[in-house]
Design a protein around this nucleic acid. Sequence first.
DNA 1: CATAAAATCGACTGATAGTCGAAAATAAAC
DNA 2: GTTTATTTTCGACTATCAGTCGATTTTATG
Lengths: 203, 203
Amino acid sequence: MKKGERRKRELLQIAYGMFVSKGYENTSVDEIIEAAGIAKGTYYYYFQSKEQMLEEVIGMMLEAEAEKAEAVLRADLSVPEKIVGIIASIQPEQQERTIDEALHRPENLLMHDKIRGRLFDLIVPILSRAAEDGVREGLFDCDHIPERIRMILILSSDLFDGHNPYTPAVIDVFIDATEKILGARPGTMGFIRALVRAPQDVQ
Amino acid sequence: MKKGERRKRELLQIAYGMFVSKGYENTSVDEIIEAAGIAKGTYYYYFQSKEQMLEEVIGMMLEAEAEKAEAVLRADLSVPEKIVGIIASIQPEQQERTIDEALHRPENLLMHDKIRGRLFDLIVPILSRAAEDGVREGLFDCDHIPERIRMILILSSDLFDGHNPYTPAVIDVFIDATEKILGARPGTMGFIRALVRAPQDVQ
DNA sequence: CATAAAATCGACTGATAGTCGAAAATAAAC
DNA sequence: GTTTATTTTCGACTATCAGTCGATTTTATG
């Protein structure tokens, strides 16, 4: 009963590494089982399909990030600090940067899309709670917080996606849009600049 | 010299129909060549790969829509009418509704993404010119028009995508966001409601 | 020890995109 | 009109892949 769980986790870990380094579409089941040293049948004893395995790999990836984000929400920080912290917590770490690159390769569209959707469902409620604090404090002035947060995430994921390089004008307009969507005073969301510029400076 | 072009067009037409009705990923090269009555080698004489053929099919699809949109831009209409018209011109027609459905199926992510990208590059400049008229008329008040137009398109394509049903609140917030992104007076963009609701009523 | 359940094996299937060298059709040159 | 080049067509073949299945081994249970 326990051995199965361990084996499954081991397979997920191996697949995770391979998906990240070679891409999901470019990693064959045959390669996974070879790396794991198991037979085809064993693989399909644990996973119904390659795609179902991908779902589990993604779930594993997001679990940790969700916890980090919740911790930031509970911490004793100002609203802007919380927002920065939550977004930073879902940003790929240095060591995980290859994931990010991998995700933006065209052959990983499916994986990218799945992660994006699930990350949004995970992060929208958390960010919304931070934004609600902001409304109470008079920092923001708007209704329908989750819908607005979601829009901001949609924009940022598309604009700062890595595959289309963004100009300073795009950042300016994005900050302006963010402030207006949330009903914040001009300049309030300037801290976004730090979040957005950093990743590009690295490479 | 001419015969080749005709054959290629014929193949693109056949593939277009099959991609639309069955989806790109679910249409095999074998099926295409069977429908066309040609051999494998002939297919690869005209196309380097299946994906390269997809690019050409998409190009064919978008050509017509670009012309329609440009015609609307040149027409003698008010700025809001032009915007509605341009967006309507890139909306799938009744007969082409299956394309739209096909595109939103998960197995067609690649095709969806490719079309989206190329449609944006096509439509952003056209819509921007209409929006610039709007600025001149005092309807809108903002800089960096193309960037702002692009953001609005990003939002709409994600929100009203078919696969996640949108609530009235989403529409309200989207309209609000659109007005604020363009610096328009409240109510100015209410006409969006007609564009957004219509497609859903159909089904 | 015997029996049931969980885990592993690997040969096999069916489908796929893409290759290749030969053959046929067409055009150009003489 | 015949020969030579070029374009077009052919289809058998390869390689790769996800997924199946019945047999076999390992582990737990009574």
